[in-house]
Simulated assay, not measured.
Amino acid sequence: MATATDHTPDFDVNRHDSLGLRVQHVLHGNPVLGPLAVLIVAVIAFSLVNTRFFSAANLSLVLAQVTVIATLALGQTLVILTAGIDLAAGAIAVFSSVLMASFCTDLGMPGIPALLLGFACGTAMGALNGALVTRLKLPPFIVTLGTLTIFFSLNSVVSKSETVRGSDMPSIMTWTGTTIPIGGFRLTYGSIIMLALFGYFFYALRSTAWGKHVYATGDDIEAARLAGIRTNRVLFSVYTLAGLLYAIGGWILIGRLASASPNVGVDYNLDSITAVVLGGTSLFGGRGGVLGTLIGALIVGVFRNGLQLAGVEVVWQGFAIGLLVLVAVSLDQWIRKVKT
């Protein structure tokens, strides 16, 4: 005859499985919870390691450092939600910033027309990626890998590998780097623009037909097409909008550096993808959102700043970020296995 103790191990296993399934379902329905928990734990941990971390001056620095990457990651999110990838994000941002500076210094254009033309150029670069993906049916990875090289090469040609100082450009070009003091905290106009963009696309993805079509296309492009969604138009729109966002990121970059340099942005592509992945957006498309991306960008900034204050060498800072990415992708794979 079986005793009560004979059934105890089975009960514990079932309870463990039930808890795991509940967590899996919660994270599947709310992908932002995981990244948010990581961010909170990181902030608390680094505050204990170094009391300077939680100072207003240091938090201002963290936000200023992640502003450009977060803006690029916003455009990257739109692309990844459709199960694509954009390796040219950094190249478009840097090339757009160089073009804006060149329009002012070489062509003598006033600030606002030069800025708008720079935005148009960034949008056109994104549209080129979208056209190659939708018209020629080329894989996004190959398309953006090719345009990455093209844009960086054109960047060197246009700039002649020379940096344009902010003092040589109209003030509107460096305006995004201007700070607003809020007590001991200093907020830049670039950060305000970035947060406004996140707010707009948070609404657009959640509350508009276009946003629903983006998710549907990323989840199953063939099913979306059969449901009447013009998937090629959706794909073209996300790459085009991403190009515009990268150009805005280029403007914010000028304000951040107080110059337009053709020699920056080498890591921007990977950093933008890292922010998206850490934010809980699936690389397989159809799941995630811009709020998670903002948190992901903050995680990268917090980890790099916190590890630096803790005296950790740069090489190990990169190791920590890479480990976080692997954990995030593994967690995404586990969450996608949830049975609905």
Rank of each mutant, 00 (worst) to 15 (best):
V266K: 09
Q308A: 12
G322D: 06
N232T: 11
A114Q: 00
P181I: 07
I69M: 13
I44C: 06
R287Q: 12
T163W: 04
S153F: 10
S55K: 00
S159A: 15
G166A: 05
S156D: 12
G286C: 04
T77A: 03
T340Q: 05
F284H: 13
S18T: 12
A89H: 03
F201N: 07
G322H: 02
V94M: 04
H25E: 09
V164C: 00
G306R: 00
G211C: 05
V338H: 10
L72I: 09
L187K: 09
T8C: 02
G130E: 11
F198R: 00
L72W: 06
V238D: 06
L87F: 09
I335K: 12
I142H: 02
G177R: 03
A216C: 10
A83N: 15
T178W: 09
F103N: 07
I150A: 12
L283N: 13
G285C: 02
S330Y: 12
L226W: 14
I335C: 01
V312Y: 01
D267S: 14
A88W: 10
S102R: 13
V277M: 07
L59I: 15
L245K: 01
F141H: 00
I85Q: 03
V290A: 08
V238F: 01
L48R: 09
R256S: 14
T67L: 08
R165L: 14
A310Q: 04
D168K: 11
C104T: 15
P262N: 05
S55P: 11
R52Q: 14
P140N: 03
I273T: 10
Q24P: 09
L154M: 11
F54W: 14
P140F: 10
G289T: 08
L116M: 12
D219K: 02
S60C: 02
L195M: 13
Y239A: 05
S237W: 03
A91I: 01
I192T: 09
T163R: 06
I299L: 14
L115Q: 07
S47E: 08
G126T: 10
D219Q: 06
R225C: 05
F103H: 07
M109A: 14
T105S: 13
H28P: 02
G118W: 04
G322T: 04
L298Q: 07
L235W: 07
D10T: 12
T149N: 14
M173E: 12
S47K: 05
W175F: 15
A64D: 15
L81D: 09
I193T: 12
I229A: 01
N232F: 08
T71R: 04
V13H: 13
V312R: 00
I192C: 06
R52T: 14
L294Q: 05
N269E: 15
L270Q: 13
K339T: 13
T174W: 04
Y189C: 05
E162F: 10
L307G: 00
M125H: 06
T188Y: 08
C104E: 11
Q333I: 14
G122S: 01
S272K: 04
R230Q: 14
T231P: 01
